[in-house]
């Protein structure tokens, strides 16, 4: 990620802030991030991809704890990273926050939260987006 690459971040804001995906008007399959066309319906899906906001709840399919991270993630180490299967179907890779490292487990229910993902040093832009936290069982 080149420093100062603001347009590249800016154009993904709807996805990163609000989990905006899309749905194929032909087969109803849901995509995140949104796709130009449905890989399964192809031609039939052209012009029929509908914008869809995902609810941000899902389940941890697998995880790792990152101890060695790139410079702009160093202050956050060690941090859990996971693949989360969202209830609507799509899967995403994101950090798990607001729990102890030992609490992260396959199968745990999580919901999205709004966090700082990283920043471009002390003078560059700050990039925000989704991370996930455990769903409280009341």
């Amino acid at each position: 990620m080149a420093d100062g690459a603001v347009p590249r971040f800016w154009r993904e804001i709807p996805q990163r802030y609000n989990l905006i995906g899309n749905q194929c008007g032909s087969c109803s399959k849901i995509y995140f991030p949104p796709r130009e066309s449905c890989p399964y319906c192809r031609r039939k899906s052209m012009g029929k991809m509908k914008v869809l906001k995902l609810k941000g709840q899902g389940e941890v399919l697998t995880y790792s704890i990152i101890y060695n991270a790139p410079e702009h993630f160093e202050r956050q180490t060690p941090y859990p990273i996971a693949i989360i299967k969202l209830d609507e179907g799509p899967k995403v890779t994101a950090q798990i926050v607001d729990c102890k490292l030992d609490d992260v487990k396959i199968g745990m229910r999580v919901q999205s939260t709004f966090r700082k993902i990283h920043e471009d040093g002390y003078i560059g832009a700050i990039y925000y987006g989704y991370k996930f936290k455990p769903i409280e069982v009341k």
Partner: peptide
Amino acid sequence: PSPDQDVATISVEAAR
């Protein structure tokens, strides 16, 4: 605040 929390994230969470 954890390193990934600032006034923007707190404000967003409160507003949501």
